[in-house]
């Protein structure tokens, strides 16, 4: 007699490789390098049920070309009618740069941690971005503006290399209508630029000098997005101004291959950027080796 072991029915976990079918409904060139992609989940039910928080990311898949993580840049109230701000820099994004409206893509997520804007209610909020860091920052900016009355003083500081590289410049006037301080600075001047030229830290220093230290210590939260060098300097200034480390939030960039805590490509020390991040408070960052 022999024992034929039976094959068991499939285990759960069907969502692991599941991606929502989505369609690129609009593409807006923002600068020479970046475009804003409006991507809508095709199924109306899935679109409605797609709930995310500012700072979370999705995996965007171009079948056969590749899949990569992107922070959602739209407001959470839009659900599965997403906006992603993408720079054509890798293989997948350069192909994406060539596709047009109507293209079907795969979206999975939302993944990761978010900026806890709900915990910042009643407080002053400093939103600081350098370069492409404005992409993940725009979602909490819009979130805060939509419920503006719940926050104290709101300041946005954004630095780019050149005026021509500023993203979402068509929206600044709208942001300003919500009683926010908006300071924009560029590294290098270009003809027609009227604003300040210099480092983002200079604007931040001015903002800090104008503020009161007890407000920074007791009722200020900060969100910082940008290249690692920038947020090290920015966070150091915030800490010197007595903003508590656990109330400074940053978004870290790593190349996830799964977004689900299984491939290890985004690990920092032993932390998964895709599960424990991409949004970390600065206390966690201080505890991470090689984070920045």
């Amino acid at each position: 007699m022999t024992t034929n072991l039976e094959c068991l029915p499939p285990v759960s976990g069907g969502e692991f490789e599941y991606s929502y079918k989505a369609e690129i409904t609009n593409v807006y060139p923002l600068t020479r390098m970046e475009k804003l992609y409006q991507i809508q989940l095709v199924d109306p039910m899935e679109r409605e049920r797609f709930i995310f928080r500012p700072g979370q990311f999705v995996m965007l898949e171009l079948p056969g070309i590749g899949e990569a993580p992107f922070s959602i840049t739209s407001s959470p109230v839009r659900h599965g009618d997403l906006e992603l701000c993408i720079r054509a820099v890798g293989n997948m994004t350069m192909f994406l740069d060539r596709v047009g409206r109507g293209t079907r893509v795969g979206i999975s997520g939302p993944f990761g941690t978010h900026f806890p804007v709900e915990r910042m209610e009643g407080e002053d909020v400093l939103l600081i971005a350098g370069g492409l860091g404005i992409a993940p920052l725009r979602s909490p900016i819009l979130s805060v503006l939509e419920t503006r009355s719940r926050y104290g003083q709101v300041d946005i500081i954004y630095g780019a290399r050149r005026p021509s590289e500023l993203l979402f410049d068509y929206e600044y006037a709208m942001w300003r209508q919500f009683d926010v301080g908006l300071d924009i600075i560029v590294d290098r001047e270009e003809p027609g630029w009227q604003g300040p030229v210099g480092l983002i830290t200079e604007i931040l220093k001015e903002r800090i000098a104008k503020g009161q230290s007890d407000r920074f210590r007791e009722r200020t939260s900060a969100i910082v997005c940008g290249p690692p060098v920038m947020f090290r300097f920015v966070c150091d200034l915030l800490i010197a101004a007595q903003v508590p480390v656990e109330k400074i939030f940053v978004s870290l960039e790593r190349r996830m291959h799964c977004g689900r805590g299984k491939c290890c490509r985004c690990n920092i020390g032993s932390t998964y950027t895709c599960l424990d991040g991409p949004v970390f408070d600065y206390w966690s960052v201080l505890n991470l080796k090689e984070a920045i």
Binding site: P10, V11, F16, G261, K262
Partner: peptide, 10 residues
């Protein structure tokens, strides 16, 4: 975790 890997799980 939140996303058990079914390729391994199966």
């Amino acid at each position: 975790g939140r996303y058990p890997n079914p390729f391994y799980g199966e």
